[in-house]
């Protein structure tokens, strides 16, 4: 694949983008059905559907974390609050930290269970409203629900822990690996847990036998991870190209090299895999967004480079709409119509 950094000759859907006047830096985007919900740096969510953009205030300060279960967007703020906002834009407080500590991380599960963390404490609340707390050995670096069973993975210093909030008599399982573990993610089949570390590397465990997976070679800390349809690939940021680790076989990426696509002089900072096809949207630090086909590396331009790094990328659940946002508040929606990419 010729690596033309200007991407002058590749097919483009950039001109089909419908720009959104966000008016504020964007830190993430989630889809609730076909409504794109942009997470602003401070205070509000921006709901964008066919007709209009609507600002929904959710926090009294910075929004530090956001997650979605497809029905709600859950946010954590520096006001110490956890807020859940539904597709209609109605938001409801979920929790309020007694000491008004920052809510650093949130996670949402399709059955309505929510999790969040403040400092070393990880909290889980079931759909029935039962709240549990677990004290991590150090500040929580990231949270993720397992795809099956009520298990919450907590990333922290020197490892990650699997916590079972509903089983008080089941001891949390500690997975050890030296260093500071931040974001955590389960493979969609639940066989692997992967963490992004403070160092420019990923670590993983095969949960059946706790064998280690080491995924290194990055130029920068990995801030974004996304599983491709069916969990065949783990797409990641952190390098001057899109890095995809193969998880097809029973050993995952053990002893295998990653697939490297869409090279650029700039780093990939955001990734979002298409929900149905092996296509990845990759956002770069110079504002470029490319759609990259995993099979052959073919690229489609979705956004030309701009003034700021791409900070938000998401596909609608059925894969026909792509939303992106940048650190300086540039945002748009691209309707691909019927799920075709090109």
């Amino acid at each position: 694949m010729a690596a033309d950094p200007s991407r002058a000759d590749i097919p483009s859907i950039a001109e089909r983008a419908r720009p959104i006047a966000a008016g504020a830096p964007i830190s993430g985007v989630h889809f609730l059905d076909r409504t794109a919900v942009f997470v602003l740096g401070e205070e509000a969510l921006l709901f964008v559907d066919h007709a209009q953009a609507r600002r929904v205030p959710v926090h009294a300060g910075a929004i530090l974390a956001a997650a979605s279960d497809g029905a709600r967007v859950v946010t954590g703020g520096d006001d110490g609050k956890v807020v859940a906002t539904g597709a209609d834009g109605d938001s409801a407080p979920v929790a309020s930290d007694a000491r008004r500590r920052w809510i650093d991380h949130v996670a949402a599960r399709a059955d309505g269970t929510l999790a969040w963390s403040a400092g070393k404490q990880a909290f889980a609340r079931t759909a029935k409203g039962e709240e549990r707390v677990w004290e991590a050995p150090s500040t929580v670096g990231g949270l993720a629900f397992a795809p099956k069973g009520l298990r919450l993975a907590v990333g922290h210093y020197n490892g990650a822990t699997l916590w079972f909030p509903n089983a008080a008599d089941t001891a949390p399982e500690f997975l050890e690996w030296k260093g500071s573990h931040l974001d955590v993610t389960f493979s969609p089949d639940g066989r692997f847990l992967v963490t992004a570390m403070q160092e420019p590397t990923l670590h993983g465990w095969r949960l059946s036998d706790r064998r280690h997976l080491r995924m290194s070679g990055y130029a920068a800390k990995v801030r974004a991870m996304s599983w491709s349809a069916g969990g065949k690939w783990l797409a990641t940021s952190g390098a001057g190209q899109l890095v995809l680790w193969p998880f097809q076989g029973k050993d995952g990426p053990m002893g295998k090299a990653p697939r490297l696509l869409a090279p650029s002089g700039k780093r990939v900072v955001t990734v979002a895999c298409h929900p149905g096809q092996d296509v990845v949207a990759a956002g770069y630090e110079d504002g470029l967004v490319l759609l990259v086909r995993v099979d052959d590396g073919a690229e489609v331009l979705a956004k030309r480079p701009g003034a700021a790094p791409v900070s938000a990328l998401a596909w609608s659940a059925e894969g026909s709409v792509l939303a992106y946002g940048t650190e300086d508040g540039e945002a748009a929606i691209i309707d691909l119509g019927g799920g075709r990419e090109q």
Binding site: D78, R101, K120, S138, T139, Y157, K178, G179, S180, Q198
Partner: peptide, 11 residues
């Protein structure tokens, strides 16, 4: 903002 000092060794 209150902080609890956490010194992490790099790997």
């Amino acid at each position: 903002v209150g902080a609890e000092e956490e010194v992490f060794e790099m790997n």
